[in-house]
Write a protein that binds this DNA or RNA. Structure first.
Length: 271
DNA sequence: TCCTTATGTACAA
DNA sequence: TGTACCTAAGGAC
């Protein structure tokens, strides 16, 4: 589930269902690992929710933040009151008169201070979904690096929020060979990639899924049968190993890169 | 019932 | 580079 768009969407949804006007929340940790902190927060209202890249921050008291990182398996599920009995894997549950939300399987769920939160912001790169972000800080790193652009896009110090789906898809959309070195990416190419990420990820927040296929390449536009890829969105290459490229028909390739599976079209992404 | 896989990251060697 | 960690779904038996 979780690339940056998911986390920004979660911040919105936490605010909508548990923001200050909704009043205080019951805070519990049925699974137990967050129980001491949950007891401290119980009965306080959620006063803010914010995302930077894949990190989610929930504020309860003026200087108390719950730092959540979903990792690979973490999931968040919202529902309407009354909340059903929690399963024993629920790390954090918030509940009020109208809603509940369960967090399961996060890599991180911890109570932190303002200073600790700031330290996390400081080590993350610009997030295409945050209004304060722009392409230049990322390009400074990319343009000096011999590392592949595919690995750089996954590095949260370079760009925050891009994950394995967006990296594969944005490189396809720009016809860029994922193995090209960062220093061989031109300023114009990077500006175009950044702008595209901003658009794609905003769509992702709105739709709560990743769709990257341009209107002129949808199955309807190309006179082909409808499709939805396994993960629930429409994409060009992600998890389409050995299937034909939607544009040229070549077999989509896959290979491990930076500990993840990379996908690309060997014909459409030659440079 | 077991095995694999998954939109992630940190730390050890 | 390898491994550990958190959970759930799907497929092979």
């Amino acid at each position: 589930m979780p690339e940056g768009h998911t986390i920004h969407r979660l911040a919105q949804d936490y605010r909508a269902r548990f923001g200050t006007p909704r009043g205080p929340a019951r805070v519990t940790s049925p699974q137990g690992r967050f129980a001491p902190a949950a007891a401290q927060l119980d009965g306080h209202a959620l006063t803010d929710a914010e995302a930077h890249g894949k990190h989610l921050f929930l504020r309860f008291r003026p200087a108390d933040w719950v730092h959540i990182h979903l990792g690979l398996f973490g999931k968040v599920a919202f529902g309407d009151a009354p909340a059903p009995p929690p399963t024993d894997t629920v790390r954090l549950r918030l509940a009020n008169g109208t809603s509940y939300v369960d967090l399961r399987g996060p890599t991180t769920c911890a109570l932190i201070t303002d200073a600790e939160k700031q330290a996390i912001h400081d080590r993350l790169g610009p997030d295409p979904l945050r209004p304060d972000a722009g392409p230049s800080a990322a390009y400074r790193r990319i343009s000096r690096s011999r590392t592949t652009i595919a690995a750089l896009l996954m590095d949260q110090k370079v760009v925050a929020g891009v994950g394995n789906v967006y990296r594969a898809e944005v490189l396809f959309r720009h016809g860029i060979d994922p193995y090209r070195a960062g220093r061989d990416i031109t300023p114009a190419e990077w500006d175009a990639i950044w702008a595209d990420l901003v658009g794609l990820m905003r769509d992702g927040v709105r739709d709560n899924r990743i769709d990257t296929v341009r209107p002129e390449h949808t199955p309807e536009a190309m006179g082909r049968p409808p499709r939805v890829d396994d993960h629930g969105g429409e994409v060009y290459v992600y998890r389409r190993a050995n299937l034909p490229c939607h544009l040229c028909g070549a077999a989509i390739r896959t290979a491990p890169l930076a500990a993840r599976n990379l996908f690309w079209c060997p014909d459409c992404q030659r440079t």
